[in-house]
Design a protein around this nucleic acid. Sequence first.
DNA 1: CGGGTAATTGAGACCGGTCAAACTCTGTGG
DNA 2: CCACAGAGTTTGACCGGTCTCAATTACCCG
Lengths: 229, 229
Amino acid sequence: MLTKQNFAHARCFLPALGDILPEGTLAFLNGRPDLVTTEHAYGAGEELFGEGEPADYAYQVVRGAVRSYKLLSDGRRQIGAFYLPGDIFGLDLVGGHSSTAEALILTKVRTVRRRSLEAAAAADPDVACELWRMTAGNLRHAEEHMLRLGRKTALERVAAFLLEMDQRLSNAGMSSLPMGRHDIGDYLGLTLETVSRSLARLQKEGIVGFCNARQIVLRNRSRLSALDA
Amino acid sequence: MLTKQNFAHARCFLPALGDILPEGTLAFLNGRPDLVTTEHAYGAGEELFGEGEPADYAYQVVRGAVRSYKLLSDGRRQIGAFYLPGDIFGLDLVGGHSSTAEALILTKVRTVRRRSLEAAAAADPDVACELWRMTAGNLRHAEEHMLRLGRKTALERVAAFLLEMDQRLSNAGMSSLPMGRHDIGDYLGLTLETVSRSLARLQKEGIVGFCNARQIVLRNRSRLSALDA
DNA sequence: CGGGTAATTGAGACCGGTCAAACTCTGTGG
DNA sequence: CCACAGAGTTTGACCGGTCTCAATTACCCG
């Protein structure tokens, strides 16, 4: 999967980023020379781990992007989260991974053995607290997302998505969306057609503009926020 | 709010339970004499804490039940979780509570100061790990619920709800639902009418039976599981 | 220029929402 | 003991937002 094609595809979404992330986003793992981390690269669509597999590693995105999802038997898919550079995931404590994780584009991650994380946490309460904090942050995101999925209209969900990505992509130094309409739909609990129609409506009203399908410019963040219920 | 009426209402849903919980469900807090816990009672509908308030305490349900929810400005509500006897919640590490918590019926909870929990976690890695595990468990539940909200039909959501409650209520020694149709709807991202219609359909097909609105008997768990996608 | 994938757009169907009315249950008070 | 009140639940009719299916267009890379 790590083909030349994938690489070229990914490169255009990571312009001039190189391996340097914004200050501090890697601080948690950087500051601990006792934790052995290894880097690993995945091509677009490649699986990092599958639902149900034992959770032997924790992951941090260095560059690229990852989707985390659950499947129903008939193929319906719910993406629970997208992970961008700096994000840590895979900390499933009990009974293996609860979701599958796949690279959206060419993605580099750091991995740490769970056992060594647990050892570090046992030795240093600050590390334990930090790990807890990461999981609590993921839980907070999930609660916010449940509100979107359960109670917001299609337009409100798309508006919320654009605002979330605007924030997070700029933090990660990325300039365009790493995911397509199908992924956005599966994240928002919508079909890709509904996502496309919602975006078209936002464009018609002058709230957003398109360079191309993956480069969306927010022309009026306040009107977008107002739509987000 | 702790009126005679409320008490009578609640009592009939907690038959002969007294203050005794199934073995082990309170072990986490019981085993630590250094952690000072205080008990507190709330009447039906009473608020334990509100979204945005500082999270100074962690809570554990002793008896009764709690709903945790977020609101949109126009009143739309999404219940993220129900907490039953034994469940621990309110562990919002950063920036105050992310949801509001209210008692569904007459409810008794134990509270622990967050500061003393953190102190205990710093002193004992096992405590820290256990706290992390609780949050990870809540995250796992949230991920499962996102799948329901985003990708399941009304009937599938109701089936999943019944199976979840069947399991958890019997663990908690409770014999009937502590919440009404409106709460179920706001948990499942449906209207109360749709919940009622789905239940009626399950009854017509002989999968469930009613003693009354809050006492639902699962006559065929395997067919119910099959409906849960 | 051509091939394939992704995205857009359209028409129609359907699930769940909305609004409204009837019914049930429970506790209250005559 | 029964009538009453009020909240909660059920049921019905209709509406509308989102999905489905299908055709067209745009875009990226050969």
